Computed example of a mutant assay.
Amino acid sequence: MTTPFTDREVAENRGATPGCTDDLVHLNHAGSSLPPQVVLDAQIGHLRREATIGGYEAAAEAVDRSAAVYDSIATMIGASAKEIARTEHATAAWNAAFWSIPMAPGQRIITHDHDYGANWVAFLRAAEVHGVEIDRVPSDVHGQIDLERLATALEHPDEVALVSLAWIPTSGGLVNPAAQVGALANAAEVPFLLDACQAAGQVEIDVDELGCDFLSATGRKFLRGPRGTGFLYARESILDRVTPSHPDHHGADWVSMDRFEYADGARRFEYWEHDHAGWLGLGAAVDHALELDIARVHATIDERAEQLRRGLDDAGMTVQDTGVERCGIVTSTHRSLSPAEVADRLTKASINVSTTMLGSARADLEPRGLTSMVRMSVHCTTTSDEIDRTLDVLRSL
């Protein structure tokens, strides 16, 4: 097994992160993590160049560093650089992939009850626009996607437009068996869109092992990059089967008055205008994660999350996480206080947490009779003392 970071190494990780202080406990990494100094340096340094010499000129000066970000992301997920597209956030990446997939009236979109609220809105809109149906594969007894039911849903692949899965959902500690879902989708030759919003930076990613045709991710969560950054992976072999829905003259070349040609590879999903400083900051975040070793980051997150779950039961909280494999997102409810009240008490104690609301995870929470949950999320900068401090506050409630 991979060894978690030692206390000394955690202290070193914290020392490289300006937001890690004794005055604040940050347990909201699934929302927006605390960036390391190298990310700030990359981002602020470029903004200063833009202010000093001009935006176009600063971009030209940084063209090699900007190109290197594609290589870094490709290294992190086991892809090639031409399969990476820059996006402004995970939803933009996911939508770029989703709306490129052909859909015919009567075809089904196969998904799991844990898919994210923004994705569900897209499913509903596709039902309005294309006449497709939403096929909800339920959870098994462990709370993860039921693979046997998925296999049955894929028995007639011509009837299926795509399989969509949230690898690590926003609404709990679940880690879905994405590679097994990919194997089933690949065997049926159905496009597989994987939402890795909460996975990137938290777990190791190998797109070949996962079997995904598309993978969407953000910078601001476990990657510890800037807000307003993200990326899309598009497998080269899927590109002939899909059509970007809103190309511009960066994602496509205007070759004559009445014709355009899509750019090579995943860049066809990009737009020309973007946050250059944010993109460079994202590259710095990816490089930093690779330097730390994401396998060890993962092991440390698991260790802290399990420590938190064990302590919550003794602190008057009920852990609501599901799944065989669980992650650094820990959700819970209090026996008498609302999640909003618990979050407010923790905030007053300088402990950052979040709440998962019904509108983000209705298909998961509604059947369980839940309207919201307290969401705490740890990282490789989280200390055991911070967990204990949080549990002490919860006990005092």
Rank of each mutant, 00 (worst) to 15 (best):
P102A: 07
C20Y: 03
G311W: 04
I109N: 00
L165M: 05
N186T: 05
G172I: 02
R268I: 00
D146Y: 09
D264I: 04
D195Q: 04
D364Q: 12
T347I: 11
A96K: 01
G311Y: 07
S80W: 05
S336V: 15
A183L: 06
I205Y: 02
R309K: 10
A85C: 13
R241D: 11
W167E: 13
T347F: 15
E9F: 03
G31P: 02
A67N: 15
G230W: 00
Y56T: 06
A277C: 12
W94E: 11
S164E: 15
R220Q: 13
V286T: 13
F269R: 01
V342M: 08
G323S: 06
D287G: 14
A315M: 12
P105H: 13
R65E: 15
S33W: 03
D253I: 04
I351P: 00
E366P: 04
S237P: 03
Y233Q: 04
R309S: 12
I84C: 09
P367H: 01
D248S: 05
G173D: 00
A188R: 02
M103F: 07
R108V: 11
D115Y: 10
G251K: 02
D392V: 14
H334L: 09
P18R: 02
K348M: 15
A51C: 06
L47Y: 12
A289H: 06
L394A: 08
G211E: 01
S396H: 11
A289Y: 04
R136H: 15
D321T: 00
G55C: 11
W94V: 08
H274I: 09
A299S: 06
A104C: 12
G54M: 04
A295G: 09
A81I: 10
E83P: 03
R224M: 06
L124Q: 13
I168M: 08
L391C: 10
E83Y: 08
P105F: 07
G31E: 04
K82F: 11
T170L: 11
I101M: 02
A79S: 12
A188I: 03
S32T: 09
R48M: 12
N176F: 01
D41M: 02
P138H: 00
A93L: 09
A183K: 04
M373A: 09
